[in-house]
Write a protein that binds this DNA or RNA. Structure first.
Lengths: 215, 215
DNA sequence: GCGGCATACAGGAAAAACCCTGTTTTTTAT
DNA sequence: ATAAAAAACAGGGTTTTTCCTGTATGCCGC
């Protein structure tokens, strides 16, 4: 019997997932527990309810998916995690992959696919939707003419980008970042190039689209 | 027996809703049909499967929630519609209210609330979550010091706002709108005032936040 | 027929954004 | 240890945005 732990703040989703699991899985499975956040997950596991697979969302109150996976990997690295979320932004996928999750599914998944993913992940396998692998491949293909990767924004660039999505002037942003306005202007230019945008509005829309700033 | 028609493109959601209905409703209910889009809804109803209540999402392929409700109100105005969606943008809520829906729920709804909403709507009642009514009230409270309503953007302002969320200069936008750059500057100023923003980035973020431009 | 109102438009000016080229300093790799 | 890359910064220029005040026109109500 395969024991599944379900972590999602929406009751609607949890019940939907349970229904799908029951109709999709060929092997015998049961829902060991449901948790509405990372904190509840910690409670469940501290009560010695050890699942064979954890299905987890990202957006949750109290403790989100990233922190939850981080904690799991530190504490019980053996439990495979299957992320099931609406968030299909590249940044999120990449962050999760780095944390060592074993599968990533979008919430518009078909029952059959969910069953396959659970089977794969509960063994020693991995499962990512075609959609997601497709996006990742196209991301990894973003090199410039010298073969340098253009896409990943470093710490400082990300910080600048977040601040650029505001009503502060670049001068004010320079102050906040403890940099000269000229340096900030350099970041601006670099990001225009990297993200192929022409003005600050382009930066803001890129940031929203890729989940770098929340609305 | 209350017959429910379920219109949502995500299998996960449909199964979740069904679970919640079964655990939340005190009265006897059954799911008469499930449809994955407005087109499928039309098929179902043309097969003479007339539900007492329709629970509907907004984002769907082929035929979305707005068009579906529009068609329903023209063809079978008697069937009450309960919108159940993640889209909590004011523009969407207002559009749906104008179409004459009877309830609007967010997908993070509690089982109990879903049951109450179904009961209310299947009678001759209405049901809106506190969250939604709260947002609507705060929107309707946006008056200026003379009592004039600031919030609703007219046609031309909306058109300008959409164009401002781009990498065109205002000069180029003026050309597209067949207006003088000075007039466009007037729209800019008026929108800064109405939306309480300080620069073009603020405009773009407002537009995204309120569903005026898609990403 | 006249004030109120919305729309379209102008001149002019300061601020901010945008762009290019080049220097210094710090970090990193070998 | 040193060359190469990345980060911080400057000078100086153009374009765009932002802001102010003021005018002309057509529409609507009373």
């Amino acid at each position: 019997m395969l024991n599944i732990g379900l972590v999602d703040d929406h009751t609607l989703f949890r019940k939907g997932i349970i229904s799908l699991i029951q109709m999709a899985c060929t092997q015998p499975v049961q829902i060991l527990f449901e948790a509405g956040s990372g904190l509840e997950l910690q409670e469940m596991i501290s009560q010695d309810r050890m699942p064979d697979v954890i299905i987890m969302d990202i957006n949750m109150p109290d403790m989100n998916g990233f922190d939850s996976v981080l904690w799991l990997k530190e504490t019980y690295p053996g439990i495979p995690v299957l992320v099931l979320t609406m968030m299909d932004k590249e940044e999120y996928i990449i962050r999760m992959l780095k944390l060592g999750i074993r599968g990533y599914l979008s919430k518009d998944v078909e029952p059959k696919e969910l069953g396959e993913a659970i089977t794969a992940v509960s063994g020693n396998g991995y499962y990512y939707t075609d959609f997601i692998t497709g996006r990742l491949i196209s991301t990894l293909q973003q090199y410039d003419e010298h073969g340098r990767n253009l896409s990943p924004l470093n710490e400082r660039e990300t910080e600048f980008l977040r601040l650029a999505c505001s009503e502060y002037t670049y001068h004010e942003i320079a102050g906040m970042m403890h940099l000269s306005p000229k340096t900030v202007d350099g970041y601006r230019k670099a990001l225009f190039e990297k993200l192929s945008v022409k003005n600050r509005v382009g930066l803001a829309l890129y940031a929203v689209k890729h989940g770098i700033v929340e609305l």
